[in-house]
Design a protein around this nucleic acid. Structure first.
Lengths: 358, 358
DNA sequence: GTCAAGCGGTAATACGTATTACCATGGGCT
DNA sequence: AGCCCATGGTAATACGTATTACCGCTTGAC
C-alpha cells in the first residue's frame, strides 16, 4: 500500500525557473508582462511551457506581502451576525457590505473569535486589538461600548461605523440613517392629517439613534409651536394611560415592539387603530434587542413607518472605508453621512378623529 | 494648520523593537511565548510596554508566509452569502458556522474579492488559489465547479464541503444531509398510508444531492417490489399528465417550486391535494436556484417534507475542519458525514384514496 | 579600434514574521 | 588562572513574489 504523499508543497516560481533554466525573476517577469522589460520570445516560450508543466499558481500571500496590503476588510458586530432566530437584523447591512466589497476587490473578515463578555463581543481582549489584521474595519451593533470606541479612535485605526456614533476622543466616520429628518417628516404627515396632539414614545437610554429621533420630534414640535410630549419607556400600561390622559391622537413610537404593545392596549380599551389612535413607527429597529416591551408581535402588521436603507448604508460604509485605505481622503478628516429614510405608508395612520376623545 | 499624520502605516515588529531597544527577534519571542527560550523579565516588560504603546497587531500575511496558522477559517460560497432578495439559503449554514467557530476561537474570512465568471464566484482566479489566506476553508454552494473541486483536492488544501461531493481526484471531506434515508423514510410513510403508486419528480441533472434522493427512492421501491417511476423535469404539464396516466396517488417532489406547480395543476384539474394526490417535498432546497418551474409559491404552504439540519451541518463542518487543522486526523484520511433529516408532517400528505382514480 | 547603445537576462533586495544557531558576559568551580 | 556552563540576547535565514539596478554581450557608428 502506497503511503499517501504528505501535504504537497506549493510549486514556486523558483522551481519553475529551475525547470526552464532561468532565474526566478524571469518567471515573475513573464507572469506579469511588465511593460518596458524585454524578454526574448524563445525564453518566454520556455517559461510558459514550464509553467504549464508544473501547474504553477501564484501564492497570494507572497504577492500581498510585497504589496503591503492584504485586501481584507474586517467586519465587527457586537452580536452574532447570523442569529438562530428568524430575526434578521444584520442581514441587509451585510448584504450591502458584501456586494460593495466584492466590487472593490476586498475579502471580508468576520470577527467571531474575540472574547465575549456576558454574551457580548469585545474588540479589545487582553489588550490587543485583533481588528488590526484587517486593513480597515466596519463596525455594527446597537450595543456599542463607549470605552472601546474611544480607544479605537485614539489608535487611528481606519474604521467606519454603521449608525451615527460620537466619541469624546475625536471625530468618528459613520454612515447612519437620517432619523431626525424622517421623524420630523412623519410628524408633518400626521400634522397634515389633522393631528394636533402627537406624542413620542421611545427609549429612555440615550443612544445616538434615540437622540436623533427625539431631536427630529422636538424640531417638528417647535416648528408648529406645540409642547412636546416625550414618554420614555416605563411600563406600557403607564405609557398608554398617559396618552389617554393627554388626549393624544397620534403616537410616534420608536420600535415595532412598543407599537404592537400599544396597539394591543388600545384595542383592549375599545380604541380602534388607526381611527381613534394613529401610530407611526420610527423605523424598524433591531428586532433582536431585549426590552421591557412584549416581544411577540403580529408579523404581518402593516405599520406606517420609514424604511431604513440598510443595504445602502452597508455599501456606502465600504466605499468610505476603501477611500480611506487608498489614501484618497484628506488624512485626519472623517466622513459622516446620514442617508435619507423613505416614508412607508401603512395601515396604522389615518385622519385625526373629529371630536376629541374623552 | 497642522498637517495630520498620513495614512497609518502598519506597525511592524521591527518598529516595536526599535522603541523597546531590542531586536525584532526578541519582540517575536515575547509575542509567541516560545517555550525553552529565556527572556529577562525586565526586557519582557519593556517589550510589552512598547507593544501597548504602538498598538501592534500581527500581520497575517507575514505570519502565514512563514507557515504559521492565523486562527482564521475561510468560507467560500459560489453565490453571494447575503442575497438582496429575501430568499435566505446560506443563512442557517452560516449561523452554525459562526456559532461553532466562535466557540473554537476562529475568525471567519468570507471570500468576496474578485473572480466572478458569469455571475458565479471562482476559487481560482488567474490560476491562483485565494483560499490560502485562511488556515482552512469551508465551501458551500449548490453550483459546484467540478474542475475547481478536483484541483482543490489535488492541492491538499484543508477544506470541508457542506453537502456531499465526489471528486475523481480523491476523497473529499464533507458534511451532508442524509437525503437518501430521508427520502426512503418519506416513501415508507406514504406506503403505510396505503399509497401503492408513488412517483419521484426531480431534477434531471445529476448533482450528488439529486442522486441521493433518487437512490433513496429506488431503494424503497426495491424493498416493496414496486416498479419505480422517476420523472425528471421536463415541463410541468407533461409531468402532471404522466402522473395521471399512471394513476399515481402520491408524488415525492424534489423542491417546493416543483411541488407548488404540481399542486396548482392538480387543483386546476379538479384534483384535491392531499385527498386525491399526496405530495411530499424532499427537503426545502435552495430557494434561489433557477429552474423551469414557476418560482412563485404560496409561502404559507404547509408541506409535508423533511428538515435539512442546516445549522448543525455548518457547526459540524467547522468541528471537522478544526480537527484537521489541529492535526488530530490521520493525514490523507477524509471525514464524510451525513446527518439525519427529520420528517416534518405537513398538510399535503394523507391516506391514499380508496378507489383508483380514472 | 573604441565607444555607445540596445538587448536579454540575473543578482539583489524588500516585504513581516518565526526560529535556529550563535555570541557575549559573568559567575561558580576546580 | 583556566574552564564550563547558564543566561540573555542578536544575527541570520527562510518563506514567495515583484522590482530595480546592474552586468555581459553584440552590433553599429564613427
Amino acid at each position: 500500500m502506497r503511503h499517501v504523499t504528505q501535504r504537497r508543497k506549493r510549486v514556486t516560481q523558483a522551481e519553475v525557473a529551475r525547470l526552464a533554466g532561468v532565474s526566478q525573476a524571469m518567471v515573475s517577469l513573464v507572469l506579469n508582462d511588465s511593460e518596458g522589460v524585454r524578454v526574448a520570445p524563445e525564453t518566454r516560450q520556455r517559461v510558459v511551457e514550464a509553467l504549464r508543466q508544473t501547474g504553477y499558481t501564484v501564492d497570494i500571500m507572497g504577492r500581498r506581502l510585497r504589496g503591503k496590503s492584504n485586501q481584507i476588510i474586517g467586519v465587527f458586530t457586537y452580536e452574532a451576525v447570523f442569529p438562530s432566530g428568524s430575526a434578521d437584523f444584520y442581514g441587509p447591512f451585510l448584504g450591502g457590505i458584501e456586494e460593495e466589497s466584492e466590487a472593490q476587490g476586498f475579502d471580508l473578515l468576520l470577527f467571531t473569535s474575540p472574547g465575549r463578555r456576558q454574551g457580548r463581543r469585545k474588540v479589545y481582549e487582553e489588550g490587543s486589538n485583533r481588528l488590526g489584521i484587517a486593513d480597515g474595519c466596519i463596525l455594527l451593533g446597537r450595543h456599542t461600548d463607549r470605552a472601546e470606541l474611544d480607544r479605537l479612535v485614539d489608535e487611528r485605526f481606519p474604521f467606519v461605523f454603521i449608525g451615527r456614533r460620537e466619541s469624546s476622543a475625536g471625530p468618528v466616520s459613520y454612515v447612519g440613517g437620517d432619523y431626525a429628518a424622517a421623524t420630523a417628516a412623519l410628524y408633518e404627515r400626521l400634522w397634515s392629517l389633522g393631528h394636533r396632539r402627537v406624542a413620542l414614545v421611545g427609549y429612555h437610554e440615550e443612544s445616538e439613534s434615540t437622540a436623533d429621533r427625539r431631536s427630529g420630534y422636538l424640531r417638528a414640535c417647535r416648528r408648529h409651536r406645540k409642547t412636546p410630549l416625550a414618554l420614555t419607556d416605563g411600563d406600557p400600561p403607564a405609557v398608554f394611560e398617559r396618552l389617554r390622559a393627554d388626549e393624544v391622537t397620534a403616537a410616534l413610537v420608536e420600535t415595532t415592539e412598543m407599537a404592537a404593545a400599544l396597539r394591543a392596549l388600545a384595542t383592549g380599551s375599545g380604541l380602534r387603530v388607526p381611527e381613534d389612535l394613529s401610530i407611526g413607527v420610527l423605523g424598524d429597529t433591531d428586532p433582536t434587542q431585549t426590552s421591557a416591551w412584549p416581544l411577540r408581535t403580529a408579523p404581518e402588521a402593516d405599520w406606517t413607518t420609514f424604511r431604513i436603507p440598510r443595504r445602502e448604508m452597508g455599501a456606502r460604509a465600504v466605499r468610505i472605508l476603501v477611500a480611506m485605505l487608498r489614501g484618497e481622503m484628506e488624512p485626519g478628516r472623517r466622513t459622516q453621512v446620514l442617508l435619507p429614510c423613505e416614508l412607508v405608508d401603512g395601515a396604522t395612520v389615518t385622519d385625526a378623529p373629529r371630536a376629541p376623545r374623552r
